[in-house]
Structures are given as C-alpha cells and as structure tokens.
Design a binder for these strands. Structure first.
Lengths: 244, 244
DNA sequence: AGCTGGGTTATAGCATACAGTCGCCGAGAT
DNA sequence: ATCTCGGCGACTGTATGCTATAACCCAGCT
C-alpha cells in the first residue's frame, strides 16, 4: 500500500519533461522554492543581468513550470532586494548602485562585529573545534589555489560564526546582507586570500579565549579591510572599463 | 478623451461588495498590497492570534478577493517573519517566543545605536528642526495622555532618525525589526511615557551638536531601558496570568 | 478497550484562463 | 518634419479550476 504520508510519491513529474533548458527542478518539495533557488543563482552569476526585464512567461517556460510559482519566487526575490517590482510592468533585476554597495558593506561590518562578540561570549569547545576545522579547510584551498573552494570555505566560516552568536535574528539579517554583498562584490572580486585567512586565524584565537572586546575589534578590522578592498577593486575595474 | 495613462479607471470594483466584513479594500493599486496591509494590521492588533491557521479561502472570502492575492500577501508576511509557512499545510500566525523577543530587542539596540550615530554625523538643520517638531508632538500627546498619539509620535520620531542616518540598508533592517518588536511588545506595552521622552530630548540635543559618540551612547541606553521595561512588564503579565 | 487501517474531507499547490493596462508604432494632421 | 491620436501587441494582475496531500474520523481487528 503506497501510504499517504511517508513515501513522497515518486511519480511526480508535472514538469514539461521536454525542452527545459535547465535541469527540470525535480525536487519533491515546494516548486516556488526551487524556482527561487534557480533564479537567485542565475542572478548571482550574472546569467540574468542587472536591469534585465524578467518576463514571467519566459522564465516559466524556461524552467518548465507555470507562471504561478515563478511569481511567488519573484515576490520573495523582491523582498530580499534582488529584483525591483514595478507595478504593472513586472520584475527587473535590481541595479546595484555604488552608494548601496557601500551601505551594505557598512551594515555588514556592524552586524558581523556584533556577531563575533557574541560568538566569543558563548562559544563552546565543540564550536571552536569546528571553527578550526573550517579554517584548515580554508588554508588548504589557499595552498591549492582553488578560488571556488576558498570562497566556499569563507562563507562556511562566517556562517558558523554567525550561528555561534546564538542570535537568530542577527543571523537572519546577516544572511540577507551577506548574500547581497557577495553579489555586488562578485564581478570584481578575488578573495583577499592569504591576508584574510591570517585575520581569521587571529580572530579564532581570541574567540577561543573568550575575549569579547578583542573579537569585535578584529572582526571590525577584517570586514573594513574587505570593504577597502572592494573599493579598491571597484576603482580598478572602472579604470579597466574606461580603457576599452 | 479618457486617455490611457492618467485617469486610473474609476469603475474598478471587482470586490464582492457584499458581506466583506472589513472595508472592501477599494484602492486602485495592487491588490496584494492592500491584502498585505489588512492582514498585517489584523495580526498586529491580535485580531488574528498567534498560532492561528490562516486559511486562504476564508481570508479571500472575508476580504472579497480571490485566493491569488491572498497567497502573495501571505508569502510576503512569511518573509518578514509574521507568519510561518508549513509546506502543504499553509500559513500560521507566527508564535513569538521569549528568546526571539529578546534577540529582536538586542538587535534593535545594535541597529538603532548605529543609526543614531550616523544621524548625529549627517544631520542637516532642517532635519534637526523636524526632530524637534516631532518631539513637541510627543510632549503634547503626553500631556493629553493620549496613548495612541504617543505611540504614533514615538514611531514617527524613530523613523525620522533612521532616515537621517542616510543608510537605506540600515533603515530597511530597522524597519523590519522594529515592527516586530512593536508587535511582541504590544500586548503588554504601555509606553514608558515621560521617561522616554526626556531621553529623546537629550538625544536630540547631542545630535544637534553633532556629537556622534554621545548620540550612540544615549540611544543605546534608551533602547536598553525599553528592553528592560519589556522584561519587567512581561514578568508582570505572566504573574497576572498565573493568578487567573 | 486500545490500536491499526482505510476512507473522507478540507486545503494547499499548481496550472490555466481572462481582463485590464502599458508602451510602442504607424498614420494622419498641423 | 514634427507632433498627436488611435490601434495593436505584450505582459502583468486577478480569477477560477484541477489535483494531490495531509489531517481527521470511524470501523474493524487484536
């Protein structure tokens, strides 16, 4: 008897099996979620460019679903600042401004600093051990010169720190801000690499000591440097563009 | 000639004029917005109680619209933490926990403090004048013993401060956190009144002076006191409940 | 009497259908 | 030649219909 609870019915393929250009999103869970993930990813890697008009029909066809889940995903993307929703005109990929990027970076510094303080205050030995693991992973990525792994390790480390803070509200806000920072940053980014990981190491040490004040300071400096590096690279990129 | 741009067609009443218990949302603009506003309000004044199951059909009938705009509004309410969306089960008004309330208040302190600092840094004379106006409005509400006006004045003052910070990202985050704080707070709240407005006065003075550091300090203390008062009243409320 | 299984009903999720609006383009007038 | 008006196409916003799922309840078994 195929019961009506456990086995998430296997024969679930309402997706126009045919020419769905992307993989057909065959998850058993809410479609809107899958669509959201897909669109967010496309936006992040510039597959959908800032300012681009997102036509519901096209996206729906492209992903092999109806307009409904697409709309819902767009709404969510809107609340999180990825797309602008002009009434009766539709959804457009948000166009980041210089000012906004700076404000995001500033806000991120504020939030992450507090997060580091709280982490230092509440850290358990297991959590610290986990931190060191993640840090080693970063070092490894660094020595292998793997950009992708490095970015990933970086994200994981920050995510864990945030979780350690124990403040879920803070965590949620940081999550939102962080993803957008990474988006803005990505076209010009090249992680600061070695430098950043040395700072991480120092930060972890003071967290292990439970030195609240110092943890805050170090995190502040860390994110401030990232911010500077952002402006730096942004300037370089602009000059680059001016030449072409 | 009734052109095709300006005159937003007057004959727009797709709302089942009949037994819509609430006013029928007759705005000419996006329905989902109106629905969102209506639901948010109902949640805030406890017309919809925490934990309550929000059935799309009922809400739609109640508001005189179809399920579609209701769904979209619910999605948005979900993103902002007002309702939980359990897949395949639907929307439930979020049940605030003690822990969450405290984390919200803590986060609010962090954000508002920074906001005050920035406001002190960037304030223009007009903005300061506006601040004083709002403060006078508060004093007036106080002397008239009007609870509603007081809450409103308080919200307006904080909102203006946030705007003065010039950081739109920060402003957005504060907006989200603040509304939820007010929700959690509301069942037991009674604004601190006199006390709070004295603190406001002092804060405005240092902002006018452009004293960044001091502005931050005062705002921190101000919100910390609110936080204490929250816990205080919460405790009283709990004891009250224990008796009954 | 308690527990297990099947059927029923209510409800969310998704798809489709319909209508109003916006922007564009061409034709005609000035 | 430019400006204006009218029509056309496209797309959003809204409504409705369909399907699958999850909880609930009762019957039958242990």
């Amino acid at each position: 008897m195929t019961d009506r609870r456990g086995t998430t019915s296997p024969g679930r393929r309402p997706l126009g099996g045919a020419r769905a250009a992307r993989q057909p999103l065959e998850r058993p869970a809410p479609l809107r979620q899958a669509v959201y993930d897909a669109l967010a990813e496309m936006i992040i890697n510039r597959e959908l460019q800032p300012g681009e008009h997102l036509v519901e029909n096209e996206l729906a066809a492209h992903l092999g679903v109806s307009r409904q889940p697409v709309r819902e995903a767009l709404q969510r993307l809107h609340n999180e600042g990825w797309v602008d929703l002009r009434p009766a005109l539709g959804a457009f990929v948000h166009v980041p401004t210089e000012e906004e990027a700076d404000q995001l970076l500033a806000t991120r510094t504020l939030l992450e600093t507090e997060s580091a303080r709280l982490a230092a205050k509440n850290a358990t030995p297991e959590q610290i051990e986990r931190l060191r693991e993640l840090q080693r992973a970063g070092e490894e990525a660094l020595s292998e010169d793997s950009q992708v792994a490095l970015v990933e390790a970086n994200a994981a480390l920050h995510a864990h720190l945030v979780e350690m803070s124990g403040n879920k509200v803070l965590a949620q806000l940081i999550g939102m801000v962080d993803r957008r920072v990474r988006w803005y940053y990505s076209p010009i980014a090249r992680s600061r690499g070695r430098e950043a990981w040395d700072e991480h190491a120092a930060l972890i040490d003071v967290i292990a000591e439970g030195n609240t004040r110092r943890a805050g300071e170090l995190m502040r400096k860390h994110t401030e440097r990232t911010r500077e590096s952002y402006h730096q690279r942004r300037k370089e990129a602009d000059e680059q563009e001016a030449l072409s």
